[in-house]
Amino acid sequence: MRPFLFSKSSAANQALAKKNHSTQFIAGGTNLVDLMKKHIANPESLVDISSALPNKVENTTKGISIGAMMRNSATANDAIILAKFPLVAKAILAGASPQIRNMASAAGNLLQRTRCPYFYDVTTPCNKRQPGSGCSAINGENRMSAVAGYSEQCVAVHPSDLCVALAALDASVVVNDKDGKTQTIAFQDFHRLPGNTPQKDNNLPANALIRAIEIAANPFAKNNAYVKLRDRDSYAFALVSVAAALHLNGDKIVEARLASGGVAHKPWRWLAAEKYLKGKTANIANFEAAANIAIKDLKPLSHNGFKIPMLKGAIETALKQCLDL
C-alpha cells in the first residue's frame, strides 16, 4: 500500500468536508483495502465513515430504508427484510463469505469495483483502471465477462449479488451532498454501462455519500428466488445469477421481475421477458418462453458463449423456485 493519512468522521457532512480528489471514504474496506494493496486505489487520505452513516433498516411511509452502513450480514438477518423483502436476504447470503458479509456495508456493496482479472492485474492494459490503455479482456481471457451492454472499451461485469435483487425490486439510492442536500437516484440509473468511460462505474455525484437504499412496498414477498451459478458451490463470484419475483393472482402472473448478475457492467433487467410474463399463466412453458426472450439478443465473447444456455436455465429455475416447483 502507498502511505496515506487516516481520519475518522462521525457525521456525513464532516466527512464530505474533508473530501478532495485524492481522498477516499472507507466503510467495510473489503474491496478498498484489497485495491490499495494492489496499488489500484492510491488515496492520499482515507476517511473512516463507519460511524457517520445510518445503520438501521427502518419502515418508511413508502416502504423501507436500508441505512448505508448496515453490514451485509445484519441486513440479511433483519426482521423487516426477512418479512417484506426476503429476496434481498437471499441475494446477500449467496455472496461472499460470512466474514466478508460481517464487514461489508450496504452502500459499499453498490460501489464495489469489478472483479475482471485484468482490472486486478496492473501489468496489463485496462481502460477501467487506466483510461485509454486498452481492454485486455475483450480478446483475452473473458469467460467471466459480459454478454450484454459492453463496449469496445470494457467488457467487465458488476460483481454484486445484493444489487441484482435491488435492481429487480426497483430500489432507489439516496445520496447526500456536503450541504446536506438529498438526491434520490433510481436503481437502474445508478450504475452505468461502460461506453467510452469505463472508469466510471456509477452516477454517484463527485462530492456525495450514499445515505440509504430505499425499497418501496411491493407484492413480491411471497414468490421470489435468487439463483446463482458459479465455479464452486459457495464463496465465488457469479458466472450468472438471476433474481426473480412474481406477483400472482391464483395461477395468473400480475407482474414479474427478472434481473441478472454476471451479464453486464450493471445489474441487468430482463424487461422484455417481464413484459411477456405479465398476464400469463405461471407454468413451465411460459417460463421457458420468457427465458428464450431474455437470451435472444445476447452477444457472447470468445470464451463465454456457455453463459447463454446457462442463463436460460437459471432464469427458468429461478421462476420455478418462485412457485416452489
Binding site: 473489503t30 483495502v33 482515507l46 466474514q99 460481517n102 464487514m103
Partner: peptide
C-alpha cells in the same frame, strides 16, 4: 492477504472478520 482464504479470521466485537482486510 487478499480476503480469499480465511486463514486470518479473528473476532471483532464478537463477529468473525478478516484481519487482513481490516485496517
Amino acid at each position: 492477504d487478499h480476503g480469499q482464504c480465511g486463514a486470518c479470521t479473528v473476532h471483532v466485537d464478537g463477529q468473525r472478520v478478516l484481519s487482513c482486510l481490516t485496517l
